[in-house]
Nucleic acid binder design. Structure first.
Lengths: 152, 152
DNA sequence: ATATTTGTTGAAAATGGTTCTCAATATCAA
DNA sequence: TTGATATTGAGAACCATTTTCAACAAATAT
C-alpha cells in the first residue's frame, strides 16, 4: 500500500477527533491494493483473509469513512451494486460497462468534459462532479456472440 | 394519456402472451401523465388516488413490465432512489442534478453523444445506452447560499 | 354464452444490501 | 496508568424491492 494513502487517512482521522485503529488500516490497505470498483462484499472477503475477526459493519463504516476522507468514491452502476473506487488525487475518469459480462473499462475525454461545462454554464448550474457511463457490449462479448451465431 | 402509449403496451402484451388488465392500464396512465423521474413510491401514491385497491407489488411489477416494453426507463441516481421515466421513442436526454435541493434538469447535447461514440469505437465497444449526470448546485440554491452568507 | 386454462393480483412474507444498536474493547490524552 | 470516549463485532433492524400463494380475472376453447 502506498504510504500516501495511509498518511492521508491518518491526517483525516486526527483532524476530526477520530482514532486510528488496526481495522481501519487493514481495510484501507486491502482497498488500495485491490482491483478497482470493489463492492463492499468483495472487500470484506479480501480483508477477512488477513484479519478474520473483522466484521461486515466495520467494512461498511470504514468505506464510508474513506469516502469522507476523499480516499474512496462511491459509485452506483445500473446493475444495482454499489462499488467503491480508490481515488487518487487527480485521475477522474468515466466508464464503459459491458452489460453481458460485467467488465468495466475506464476512459477519459477532455473534450467531453469541456462540453459538459458548456452545458452547465448555459443552465447557470455549478457542477461539482459528474458521472458518465456507456453501457453496451465489449469486443470480447461481441465476438463470442457472433461466433455462437456462426456455429448454429 | 396518449393513445400511443397504451397501444404500445397492448402490442407488447399481446406479443408476449400477456394480458391486458385494468391495473396495468391505470398504472400506465398515471405514469404517463405524471411528472418525470418518478419513484415507485410516488407512482403508487398517485395510482392509489384513482384505484385504491391496487397493491404495491403490482406497481413494481408493472413498472418493470413497462421497462421491458420500452415505455419506461429505470434510472438510479446517486441519492439511492430508483426512479422511472417515461420514454417516448426518441427523446434521449441527460441530467443535471442539484445536490442541495434535489431538483433534476434535463439537457441534450449532440456533440457529447458524438464524442461518446468516438470513445466507444476506439475501445471496440458497442454502446447501447448511456448515462450522463452532472451533480452540483442549481442557480436557485447558489443564490440562496450567497444571500445567506451576506446576511450573516 | 360458459367453461377452462393460465396469467394476474393483493397481502404478507421474504430478500438482500446496508445501517444501526449495544455491550465489550481499544485508543488517546492527561 | 487511568479515565473518557471512539470503535468494534454480532446480530437485529431497516427499507426498497421481489417473491409467494391463494383468490381472481382475461383470453381461449367448448
Amino acid at each position: 500500500m502506498t504510504k500516501k494513502a495511509s498518511d492521508q487517512l491518518a491526517k483525516f482521522l486526527t483532524g476530526h477527533g477520530l482514532r486510528s485503529t488496526s481495522q481501519r488500516n487493514a481495510i484501507l490497505s486491502a482497498f488500495v491494493d485491490a482491483k478497482r470498483h470493489m463492492s463492499a462484499e468483495e472487500l470484506y472477503a479480501q480483508v477477512k483473509k488477513m484479519h478474520p475477526g473483522i466484521g461486515y459493519a466495520t467494512v461498511y463504516r470504514t468505506l464510508k469513512l474513506l469516502s469522507e476522507a476523499g480516499l474512496a468514491e462511491e459509485r452506483r452502476f445500473d446493475d444495482g451494486f454499489t462499488r467503491f473506487e480508490y481515488k487518487s488525487a487527480d485521475n477522474h475518469h468515466d466508464h464503459l460497462i459491458c452489460t453481458r459480462c460485467g467488465a468495466i473499462f475506464e476512459f477519459e475525454n477532455e473534450r467531453i468534459e469541456i462540453l459538459q461545462q458548456d452545458v452547465a454554464r448555459e443552465k447557470d448550474f455549478q457542477v461539482h462532479s459528474h458521472k458518465l457511463e456507456l453501457y453496451g457490449l465489449c469486443s470480447e462479448c461481441r465476438n463470442r456472440i457472433s461466433r455462437a451465431r456462426k456455429s448454429k
